[in-house]
């Protein structure tokens, strides 16, 4: 009678999702660590090897100074990730503090936070980034702070919404009436509700930060030219691309794109796996 009951398959969508997430994580962590280990001699200047097209020896070819583009790209991407980690850490802390404050206190605190969020979201992102980075003297410090203080608004909104929702839920209200203190309710009900949202938000912020850092650097307001950053590489490639040196732009660009897509994939995957309501695909 119940022949369709409890038939389980090993390879279902969730397992597939987990596998792709692991692949993505390995790619990202691999590049990060590898980039940290690469010494400067791997992409040292060598005028004997100028403008070599991709080959077995130089996978991504070489540039006008004969530097190996593969190692430069890895190093650049890894540098972007370091900046990403720091700026995301700062922004997510700003977001969680502002989000919780505005949801818990309401009233004028809520108004001020919402106003700040709207203001920050209303201004063109890139312009704001360039301005802040420029004011702080560009370089790693400037771009990190600029990325950190421009990426909190969307996450603040998300956290505020979640806190409001869980605070108004019947089970939290009932817990207060059953004599639980604010502190106990926060630990037992509110934080477990917010944490998944927070982690997903953080993972989804990464690609934003990395893209923006590269864009600002590309425009010349971020990392200095002597650093092997993706933005710098792409900017340099622009001057040579007309002469047919396509590999200078294509490979680093693709590396950046893959990194961004993988971050997005991990974030969306987490969202799917952690949300209790997606139990049926």
């Amino acid at each position: 009678m119940h022949k369709y009951h409890k038939k389980s398959r090993i390879l279902n969508k969730r397992v597939a999702l987990l596998i792709t997430m692991i692949i993505a994580a390995v790619y990202l962590v691999g590049i990060f660590i590898w980039g940290c280990c690469i010494g400067e001699d791997s992409y040292a200047v060598n005028f004997g090897n100028k403008f070599l097209p991709p080959s077995a020896e130089h996978w991504f070819g070489t540039d006008n100074l004969g530097r190996d583009m593969f190692f430069r790209s890895i190093k650049g991407l890894s540098l972007s990730m370091v900046i990403g980690v720091i700026s995301v850490a700062i922004s997510s802390v700003i977001a969680i503090v502002m989000g919780i404050l505005s949801a818990v206190f309401g009233g004028w605190v809520d108004k001020v936070v919402n106003w700040a969020v709207d203001l920050c979201m209303g201004l063109p992102h890139l312009v704001l980034l360039i301005l802040i980075s420029f004011m702080l003297g560009k370089g790693v410090f400037g771009i990190t702070i600029a990325a950190a203080v421009t990426h909190w608004p969307s996450m603040t909104r998300m956290i505020r919404q979640e806190v409001l929702q869980v605070r108004n839920s019947q089970y939290v209200q009932a817990a207060y009436k059953m004599g639980r203190s604010r502190w106990q309710v926060a630990i037992k009900h509110i934080i477990p509700h917010i944490l998944p949202v927070y982690f997903i938000g953080v993972t989804l912020l990464f690609p934003h930060c990395i893209m923006h850092e590269s864009a600002v650097t590309f425009l010349g307001f971020g990392l200095p030219r002597e650093m092997p950053a993706i933005g710098v590489i792409l900017a340099e490639a622009m001057t040579h691309i007309v002469t047919g040196k396509w590999w200078l732009a294509v490979f680093p660009g693709i590396m950046l794109l893959i990194a961004v897509i993988f971050f997005d994939l991990i974030g969306e995957g987490l969202k799917n796996l952690l949300n209790p309501h997606t139990g049926n695909e």
């Binding site: 369709y4 009951h5 038939k7 389980s8 398959r9 279902n12 969730r14 987990l18 139990g279 695909e281």
Partner: peptide
Amino acid sequence: YKKGFRKYE
């Protein structure tokens, strides 16, 4: 999906 990755009907 039950908890985790096992699918069932």
